[in-house]
Design a binder for these strands. Structure first.
Lengths: 132, 132
DNA sequence: TATTGTTATACTCTATAACTATA
DNA sequence: TATAGTTATAGAGTATAACAATA
């Protein structure tokens, strides 16, 4: 099967499987980790800003944050300036777990791309295809 | 976002969007077309063999074939040798539509990979990551 | 007993619309 | 009026289990 859709779909599925397995001991999956990484970088974000940054629907981010909050990784705080907004921040446990899980993710990605002569170029090409 | 999962997910989403739009006039989506391509290549296949070839679950292929059969692209015939097996074949209309849609798909993929210096290498790298 | 295909069910991810509370 | 977040709902896509027909 030479089809681009088939190839991308199954490459993504394989990566997702490996990430899920490797991150499970930390109570996270790849999606959770992406949410944490959006929160940890830079100034505090509202839920809507997190959703935009991850390019997911704002109705999806609520459930994701519910799970992360139950497990003690994030907290939601009503913004004093605009009480409609929920500012999302990492807890101390969230920071610690994130740091560990990020190392795992980088290691998984490194191994995953190991068959390629130039993994960095492959990643750059994906970015190029997204127009970014 | 440098994350491999994010990049693959959104590159796939963009390709899927473009394929869906381009194939819609022919009554097909990218998934349908993949099913047709599995059927058209080589000797007649049973539903189970189609599922294996596409690496989808055998319970998923039934619905896909229902849709393709309703639209007159494929026919299911009880195999005389083994009456448990449904042999799936393209109708004449299926052959014609497939040939046209395949040209569209190739053109879409060519345009999609146009930003890359070497689209063929990119595709080969995806295959390499699948171990094939 | 094992296999092919079907049906029922469920789970995840995604998307839309309607609702609330705030602005 | 518009925005942030929530809730309900529905649609894909996928997976498991149980079943009927057949081997």
């Amino acid at each position: 099967m030479d089809r681009l859709g088939y190839l991308l779909k199954h490459v993504l599925a394989r990566l997702t499987d490996e990430q899920t397995k490797a991150l499970a001991p930390y109570g996270l999956n790849g999606r959770d980790l992406a949410v944490l990484s959006a929160i940890v970088a830079g100034e505090p974000l509202s839920q809507l800003e997190v959703a935009h940054r991850l390019r997911v629907d704002r109705t999806s981010i609520g459930d994701l944050l519910d799970g992360l909050e139950e497990r003690g990784f994030v907290e939601r705080r009503r913004s004093p300036e605009d009480r409609r907004r929920n500012v999302v921040v990492l807890t101390e446990q969230g920071e610690t777990t994130f740091a560990t899980a990020e190392r795992i993710r980088l290691e998984i990605e490194r191994e995953f791309l190991a068959p390629l002569a130039d993994g960095a170029r492959f990643r750059d090409e994906l970015k190029l295809l997204l127009g970014e």
